[in-house]
Simulated scan of single mutants.
Amino acid sequence: MRVVSLVPSLTEAVALTRPEVLVGATDWCTHPAGLDVARVGGSKYPDLDRVRALRPDLVLLNEEENRLADAEALRAAGVPVRVTFPRTVPEALTQLGELVGAVGVAGEPDWLRAARRAWTAPPAPATPRAAVVPVWRRPWVVLGRDTFAGDVLRRLGVTNRYADHPERYPRPGLDELRARAPELVVLPDEPYRFTADDGPEAFPGVPAALVSGRHLTWYGPSLAEAPALLAAQLAAAA
């Protein structure tokens, strides 16, 4: 079997489960460290000629991360594709279980069993807080309704002020963000790299939690570490 992954978290999942079948990945697939496979460009604009040249039996995509046009082009060329789109932690765990089966693995790998255990009883927050969660700046983009990252935070005691917004990724102005009176602002380091010097200053007087974007938004082996790590980062918000 030959697999090309256009989703960084799924690249990591396959590489740690059945590495011999992974023949291609995007330039943004950074885990596991030292991954040595052919690169096929970015997630949004992969080089489909390179993908096809690898003669994959399966290409992995995500409905949110990849373009429908690329999935359709691969299907039209006779390339089998598998598209994921988890919006909750349970959906992610289910889809990951289906994925490892699709790449020929009987039973669940250790990392997936560990992820299931970790999310069975995630750390309880000392004080639940309502937050805004920017994922981009210039313009501001925040988590809205029905997102995987929003569900991750909800399970760790963070209520998203935009969870009832009609859009999944609203683009409010900064004045509107401040008007939501957040008790916390959650700033991941990807896709936009918020830092202590870039992000918190926009919300004076509001505690800022700088968190791992990989553990907030990736669904794969990082799920096993995510509850404890994110809970600690949220608790550290001053």
Score class of each variant (00 low, 15 high):
residue 113 R to E: 14
residue 113 R to L: 05
residue 114 A to P: 02
residue 114 A to Y: 00
residue 115 A to S: 14
residue 115 A to D: 15
residue 116 R to Q: 09
residue 116 R to F: 03
residue 118 A to Q: 01
residue 118 A to P: 11
residue 119 W to C: 03
residue 119 W to R: 05
residue 120 T to L: 08
residue 123 P to S: 14
residue 123 P to E: 12
residue 124 A to G: 09
residue 124 A to K: 03
residue 124 A to Y: 07
residue 125 P to V: 02
residue 125 P to I: 01
residue 126 A to W: 09
residue 126 A to G: 15
residue 126 A to D: 15
residue 127 T to D: 12
residue 128 P to N: 03
residue 128 P to L: 00
residue 128 P to C: 00
residue 129 R to Y: 06
residue 129 R to Q: 06
residue 129 R to M: 07
residue 129 R to W: 07
residue 130 A to G: 05
residue 130 A to W: 05
residue 130 A to S: 09
residue 131 A to K: 01
residue 131 A to Q: 04
residue 131 A to D: 06
residue 132 V to R: 14
residue 132 V to S: 08
residue 133 V to H: 07
residue 133 V to A: 11
residue 134 P to E: 09
residue 134 P to Y: 09
residue 135 V to Q: 09
residue 135 V to R: 13
residue 135 V to P: 02
residue 136 W to Y: 13
residue 136 W to C: 08
residue 136 W to V: 10
residue 137 R to F: 15
residue 137 R to C: 09
residue 138 R to V: 12
residue 139 P to G: 14
residue 139 P to I: 11
residue 140 W to P: 04
residue 141 V to C: 12
residue 141 V to E: 13
residue 142 V to D: 14
residue 142 V to T: 14
residue 142 V to R: 13
residue 145 R to K: 14
residue 145 R to E: 04
residue 145 R to A: 11
residue 146 D to H: 11
residue 146 D to E: 12
residue 146 D to Q: 06
residue 146 D to I: 11
residue 147 T to S: 12
residue 147 T to R: 06
residue 147 T to L: 08
residue 147 T to C: 07
residue 148 F to R: 14
residue 149 A to P: 00
residue 149 A to E: 01
residue 150 G to F: 07
residue 151 D to G: 04
residue 151 D to V: 01
residue 151 D to E: 13
residue 153 L to S: 01
residue 154 R to H: 04
residue 154 R to N: 04
residue 154 R to S: 06
residue 155 R to S: 04
residue 155 R to T: 04
residue 156 L to T: 00
residue 156 L to G: 00
residue 157 G to H: 02
residue 157 G to K: 00
residue 157 G to N: 03
residue 157 G to R: 01
residue 158 V to S: 06
residue 159 T to P: 03
residue 159 T to N: 09
residue 160 N to S: 00
residue 161 R to W: 10
residue 161 R to C: 08
residue 161 R to P: 07
residue 162 Y to S: 07
residue 163 A to F: 12
residue 163 A to S: 15
residue 163 A to M: 11
residue 164 D to M: 08
